[in-house]
Structure formats: C-alpha cells, structure tokens
Design a protein around this nucleic acid. Sequence first.
DNA 1: GAGCCGGGGTGACAATTGTCACAGACTTAC
DNA 2: GTAAGTCTGTGACAATTGTCACCCCGGCTC
Lengths: 216, 216
Amino acid sequence: MSTDSPKIHQYIETHFPFFEAGLKEKIEEVAILKHFRAGELIMRQGQYFKHTVLIAAGLIKLYREGDDGEEVFIYHLNPGQACALSIICAAKQETSQVLGKAVEDTVAILIPVPAIDELMKNYKSWYYFVLENYRDRFDELLLMLDHVIFKSMDQRLEFYLENQVKQKGNNQLSITHQEIAQDLNSSREVISRLLKKMEIDKKVNLNRNYIEWLNC
Amino acid sequence: MSTDSPKIHQYIETHFPFFEAGLKEKIEEVAILKHFRAGELIMRQGQYFKHTVLIAAGLIKLYREGDDGEEVFIYHLNPGQACALSIICAAKQETSQVLGKAVEDTVAILIPVPAIDELMKNYKSWYYFVLENYRDRFDELLLMLDHVIFKSMDQRLEFYLENQVKQKGNNQLSITHQEIAQDLNSSREVISRLLKKMEIDKKVNLNRNYIEWLNC
DNA sequence: GAGCCGGGGTGACAATTGTCACAGACTTAC
DNA sequence: GTAAGTCTGTGACAATTGTCACCCCGGCTC
C-alpha cells in the first residue's frame, strides 16, 4: 500500500486540488488505488459497496438496467468526480442502483467505509465536495429525464453523440449503430435511419465502425 | 417567532424523531414555519433558495418543466422528508431545477442558509438525514427514469394512479383526465382511451371528476 | 327553457418508432 | 481463394401515441 501512496498523492493534487490540506493527507493514509481495464465492469446493480469511489483517471459510463437486461446510458463519470451513489450506499450499506463500466483504462481511489464518517465530520471541503457532486449527478439525471420525456429520438441521438464527442475529446467516435441503439434503448434500424438523415443534413459523416461528428 | 416555537417542536417530534436531542433544539432555535395553501406554488424552476425546506405537514408534488412549459410530475414530498435540492442549492446558492406545488395545505420548516454548515458539522443525525434523503430522491428519480424509458403509457398510467392513491391514502382520486395527461406529458384522449381499457379490465371505476382505484 | 362550458367518449388519421426480412460490403479465419 | 461473421442500408409493415373533429352529458347562468 505504501508504494501506492505517492501515486494517490499525485492523483489527488491533480484532480482534487480543492480538498483541504489535512483531508488530502487523510485520504492518502486510508485510501487504496484500483485499476480497471477499458471495458471492465466496475459495479453491478444490486451490488454492495465497501468503498466510496473517486475517479482519478480514465472514463466511466453509468447505465440503468431495465427488467429484461437492457442497459440504458445515463451519464459519464470523469476524473475529479465521485460516484454519488457509492458515497451514500457505502455509508448506509445499501446496494447500487446503477451499473458502471470503464470506457477507457480507469484508476479509482477507494476510501473504505469506516473512514467516511470522519471525513464528513472533520473536513468541510469533503462535505462540500459530496454535496456538490450529488447535486451535479442529480442535475444530470434531471437532464436525462428531460430528454427522455420531452425529446424525440432524433434529438436524443444528437444529444448523445455530442455528449460522447465531448467526453472523448475526439470527434471520431468509434462506435457501432448497434451500441448506440442499446445506449438509447432503441433499435439498430432506427438509429441507422436517423444517422442517415443526419448525414444528409451534414451533421455527421458515416463510416464503417466510426462516426465523424461535424460540429458546425 | 417565539409563538411558533412550540409548534415547530411538535412537528419535529412527530416527523423527525430520529434527530438527536441537540439538533432538535438547534432547529427550534433557528427555523421558522411557513404555511402553504393547497394548490399554491412553493418553488419555481430557476428560483434561489434562502432556506433548506423540511416538510412538516401536508403533501407536495414536484414537477420538471419542459421547454414549452409542460409540467411533468416527478415525485411527492411527504412530512418527514426534505427537498433534496433545497439542501444543496441553499448551501451553494444555486437555483432550483424543479417546480413544487402544494397538493394539500402544507407546513414547511425553513432553516436559514447560515445555520446549515453548523448542522452538518455538529450533528451526525443531520448529515445522515441529508444523505439518506438525497439517496431516496435519487432512487425515485431513477425509478421515474425507468418508467419513462422502459414502460409504455398504459403501464406508466397504472403506476401513476397507484402512486397517487398511495400518497392520498384514498382510492377515490378527484382528478380529471386532462390533469393526468399533463402530469404524464400525454394527451387527454390517450389517457381517456387507456382508462377505458382499465375500466373494462376492472382496474378502475370511472366517474365524472373522479376515478376509483380497485386495488385488487 | 336556452345557451355555455368543462369533462369525457370516440372514430379517423398521421407521425414516430419498433420489427422483420433481406441484401450488400467489408473482415477475419481457414 | 472460400466461408462465416459483423456492420450497415433499406423497404414493408405493425403498434403506439398524438392530433383533429365532433359528439354527448351534466351543471351552471341568465
């Protein structure tokens, strides 16, 4: 664990600079690092948390599972963010309601449950972080709800693509129509048709295995 | 304000018995009561909070607004619960993302912003309450998302009616088809058709201005 | 009573989305 | 090379939902 410490220190300095001095040290003391490979499952629905999860590097996609196992994309988690549910589920020993997958190779800082009470009590920057983080997740969820309720599939598709491009920082998305359809709980044919329309409208270029986003 | 104090005390004892002794006293000291009439608007989207809002009596419906002013029902707030957003928006001086209306005459306990930091820091039962409350709202939001994404309108309608009956504690719902359609972001005709089917299936009795839920 | 209005029922039709079927293009394994 | 598998395009059709038109009913006012 001591070999991890300098790395934790570096990650915290980079992505959690707003933590107060004592808090940084405390986390370095109790936390451990965990690495996930791209594509790896990080948490399942129904699983218990033993730690609060902070994202130190990489990119995570969070999904909500339907009754028949459909996996609908909800939002991304970036370095500097935390899994909101992990904070609370860990504290209350409840189970996850979402499913998380690493999109890229990802590093997580795991803070064991027993330490959380102390952080919350003693470090103002910690509880501010938790609240702000929760608030942000809540907002993203509301935004998602807006789209599902008020928007049609073509608008949701555009929003989705824009979002993915923004997160990946690359307007060449290597993704198949089938994958998009799953993330939006639609079907491949529908996505193909809508993408074709978007290509005619000069919003994207379509290629085998990747889509180019024209952000004009 | 001092005339309110005994009432605050009573409300807290009844609906927030899990607060530790010192916390109850502290809240009685700093909080004020506010009454809302049935139908009254409690908060608008885009509004700033000056207080954290605890529900002491009555029933509140929360809505999310669409771009064209459509108001879609998200969830209820009951006595013993708090508006999750008010906790964080108040603390961070951000604006509301939802719209709240009193369904019945409602009493709210308002805790001024400056007091919140202290509550969070000194009272473990407060921050547990906040976390648990946030977690519960988050879960309700996820549940709502599930329904909108995965379910068809007839299932959402049944879920909606069941929910309203549960909240009102009365299986005679005095609500018009038009109002239901607004809450579900549908249209009156569709709701009427589906209700008619449900009547044939002996799930409800339809009457002018009210609907009887047959919870067999 | 006549007229109005809100609540509700219903048929016809349109738009969106999901489903099925099948074809062509490219990749990979052999 | 062939064969199999994956990715995409497309036409036909069905189901759901939204929209329009128009109806009746009950209660209200005048």
